[in-house]
């Protein structure tokens, strides 16, 4: 099989998996982490298209800035920032 096809299958599998985890993960910070994984793998797929400029801009803007803004929004707006330690255990 062609190496590019293998790379595309790995990247797209990671991307779909991370997108599903973005929606289904329970903690909001995990959602943002999986969103970042999704966006970075999209940059990898751009690289496979030989669109290098778009790929690096994707990493700078979407992997670097957008998830951090989400995290800031989450952490600054929620009243209870951290999980309480489990007292029952």
């Amino acid at each position: 099989m062609d190496l590019e096809v293998v790379a595309f299958l790995i990247l797209s599998g990671l991307e779909v998996g991370a997108a599903v985890m973005t929606v289904t993960a329970k903690k909001l910070v995990h959602n943002v982490f999986w969103l970042a994984v999704t966006l970075i793998t999209i940059a990898g797929i751009y690289l496979l298209f030989l669109a290098e400029f778009v790929a690096w801009i994707q990493i700078i803007v979407y992997a670097g800035a957008v998830p951090v803004l989400f995290l800031f929004g989450i952490m600054l707006t929620r009243r209870k920032i951290m999980e309480e330690p489990h007292e029952s255990q």
């Binding site: 910070v29 982490f33 690096w56 990493i59 992997a63 670097g64 800035a65 951090v68």
Partner: peptide, 21 residues
């Protein structure tokens, strides 16, 4: 130079996650 800037820009996310986790 764009690649280097992109690699620099991933650091805040990982630092924030380290601090939160």
């Amino acid at each position: 130079v764009l690649v280097i800037l992109g690699a620099f820009s991933v650091a805040p996310l990982s630092i924030l996650i380290a601090g939160w986790a």
